Amino acid sequence: MLRWILLAVAVVVLAAASTLVMNSAPAPSPFGVPVAPTATGPQPKAVVDGDLTWEFGEMGQQQTGKRSWKLTNQGEVDLQIWKGSSTCMCTVAKLQKDGDRLTLKPGESTDIDIEFKTNYVTGDFHKGANIETNDPLHPTFPLFVHGKINPPIILIPDNTIDFHTVNTDAPTKVFVALYSPDRPETKITEINTSKPEYLTTEVVPMSESEIESSGGKVKQGYKINIDVKPGFPMGLMREEIVIHTDHPHRPEIKLTAVGTVVGPVSVVPDRLRMVTVKSAEGASSEVHLSVRAGKEATFTVASKPDKLEVSITPEESADVKGRYKVTIKVPKGTSTGLIDGEVVLKTDLPNAGELKIPVSFLVGSN
């Protein structure tokens, strides 16, 4: 009996001791990981002069920029510094001592350079690199550069010039503005057009009032007047204008002039497109021409895709004059493939020039 009493007393004593140990132990981390010990004793202290983001304003494409920050160890022990991650290959943090890692004694300073290349970015630019340290309060310093990147040449409105509707009986003029933000002294050396006999250009320096109205964006620039002369071929317009400059990063600029040229002859429809032509059967379609005021005219075929047959006949009508039918035919046995191009007609009407009819036929075996 005495033996059982002693055993019970021992169990109670052990339970009490266990409870005391549990209550005196530190509480576990609520995140399931050990609590990091708090730094004690003298520590390094990294201090960077100025804002960590440098606002550089505006730069041009394919340029290299550089910014320096001064970093000082204001702590009581050595500060370790090394390069961290970068937002892109165009941004590199360079420490002003040998190697990618250095030690600063208390009170010592160093410069940290960020070099960056704008490449072909247009618009907002925000890049940076991280500097890592052994300062427990500032383990990382993110150094950034921010600004706007301009293309070498700016065109207003843009690289496509829409003439909308052009009357072949009268001259039509539009203009584009051109300037260089990073090289205001840029000059236009030459301009070529795909139809120099009908599409001409004139370069005029911007006036002082035009430069002032830009709000400081333009220091020097040009207006390029583009003229469509009477007699331009009727139909859809898509021509090229090539501007040559002395800017090293944009020596050539290609513009596209688009629109619809109308005149004394209207075309219905203004283009032909067929995607179900069978080689064994062939196919044909028609375009109708109407001459203004019912005048009579002569039309001849100036050019056409080789595989097509084109004929022009007056429309039979006793009441209406000046109307003609253009029959465009894919002959039987035409080889398979895409027939894409223009049927160009000439006329004897004054200032009418040529008449272009875009055509597209897809010839299949079945």
Rank of each mutant, 00 (worst) to 15 (best):
L104P: 01
C90P: 08
D348W: 06
M1H: 07
A257C: 12
R273K: 11
P26G: 03
I131C: 06
P26F: 00
I226Q: 04
S18I: 10
K329W: 09
A93H: 04
N134D: 10
K321A: 10
T140M: 09
E286M: 14
D227M: 14
V363K: 00
V9L: 15
N159E: 08
P205Y: 10
D100S: 04
F144Y: 12
V166L: 14
R238M: 07
C88T: 09
G294T: 03
K332S: 11
A352T: 06
V344L: 05
P152M: 01
G41P: 02
S109G: 02
S209I: 14
S303V: 10
L2V: 04
P152A: 08
T122D: 10
A15N: 07
D348V: 02
K219T: 07
L289F: 11
S279F: 00
V242R: 05
L143T: 06
A177F: 10
P181T: 08
R67L: 06
F56W: 12
L79Q: 04
E296C: 05
T276D: 13
G147E: 08
G353T: 03
F361I: 01
Y120L: 06
S29N: 12
T118G: 02
N366S: 14
E202D: 08
D49M: 02
Q220H: 09
K332T: 06
S109E: 03
P44I: 00
E315I: 14
M1L: 07
R250M: 13
K148R: 14
P205V: 06
S207A: 12
L362K: 14
Q43R: 01
G99K: 00
P230C: 04
G75E: 01
H138D: 03
W69F: 14
V11N: 10
T313H: 11
W69M: 04
G107V: 00
L155Q: 05
T189K: 05
T165A: 13
V121H: 10
D348K: 08
H164R: 15
A39G: 01
I153K: 01
E296L: 07
P44N: 06
S213Y: 04
L2I: 05
K304V: 05
T168Q: 09
E202Y: 05
D348T: 01
A283C: 02
E132I: 07
E354I: 05
Q80N: 13
F56T: 03
P157K: 03
R273I: 07
T300C: 07
N134S: 04
K173D: 12
V262Q: 06
V35I: 14
S180G: 06
G294D: 09
S303L: 06
T256P: 02
F116N: 00
E190L: 09
T298M: 14
L349A: 05
D158F: 11
W54T: 12
D78S: 06
N351P: 00
H249K: 15
A36G: 07
R250S: 12
G216P: 02
F232E: 09
I339W: 03
F361C: 02
K195W: 15
T334A: 02
D113W: 15
K346N: 13
V291S: 05
E190T: 04
K94T: 09
T327H: 08
T140E: 11
